[in-house]
Write a protein that binds this DNA or RNA. Structure first.
Lengths: 151, 151
DNA sequence: GGTTTATCCATAGCACACTATGCAATTACA
DNA sequence: TGTAATTGCATAGTGTGCTATGGATAAACC
């Protein structure tokens, strides 16, 4: 087992690496369902029959609007979402899951839980809570770096 | 401050979000230097005049070979690396930093330290060490998920 | 020595993320 | 009410990452 000291001491590097491993673990499981990891926030947000705008979905997923636009375009292509005009706003369309997507919902949720369990398999319950807590605090600090209004 | 319970309890989601915030914070600082965040592992690996193969750099950065190939292509385009044929192996080329890149080295290192400090600004020294330790253990578990030989 | 296997790298094709920009519809306000 | 500012979405362009594949050189093994 060779070591890489610069790498293993860098919070940014390790966080990035962990995120890529999470995505790979998720994608390995979702590929069988014809689903991609970026679809997950949309699946969860619309799981109970909700109809949300693209902007609302982007906020829930913490991605920029053009990123969500591209994700929804792929989901549309894959037959997973339907769009209906918002009667209250001529600019907006409301997005909901199709019956096809609803059938995949349980599998998507199972994949999420499974990967979460794998990632936490070496941690005690207390350490798992610590991990989430520390992550949230690191996130808060980094958010205030980009947006001083959040201080 | 609105909440998003599904999101804030998901280790994969939070890790991904933190990684994107790290990358954005780094890129905001490196853009002035004409450097991208993916160049950082290459900068650090070659900081002391080393000459390494593409495969070695990919391993150090923990990315797949085609990913490193694309990164090196951009660094080449930006005049940051030089490639010389490996006299001992006709398939391989040895990569090193150009004088232009060496001039940027201090700035790149400073950006890394600065973002690390921002991310850790809300954590005690003990908590910072815990964060890195927990990350490494989560990474180890996720690696064994994709490669059972690592168990 | 010649065949097989492994290794190094390039390319194709795609997913997912970002910034910058612009149009169209809505809201705010003078 | 009519103009200005805001908001919702689309598009263009780019960076970073992945898998799959193939060619060319090197190493291993009859």
């Amino acid at each position: 087992m060779h070591m890489n000291f610069v790498r293993d001491r860098s919070s940014g590097y390790l966080t990035n690496w962990a995120a890529r491993l999470f995505a790979r673990a998720i994608d390995r499981r979702l590929t069988k369902l014809g689903v991609n990891s970026a679809y997950m926030p949309v699946f969860f947000a619309l799981a109970n029959g909700e109809s949300l705008s693209q902007t609302a979905l982007a906020n829930l997923a913490s991605v920029e609007q053009p990123t969500m636009a591209a994700t929804l375009k792929r989901m549309d292509r894959d037959g997973l979402i339907a769009r209906s005009p918002d009667p209250a706003d001529g600019r907006s369309a409301l997005v909901s899951l199709t019956p096809v997507a609803k059938k995949k919902l349980r599998g998507v949720q199972a994949a999420g839980h499974e990967v979460n369990d794998v990632a936490f398999s070496g941690l005690t319950a207390k350490e798992q809570a610590q991990y989430l807590d520390l992550l949230r605090r690191v996130i808060a600090s980094l958010e205030s770096d980009s947006d001083p209004s959040k201080l």
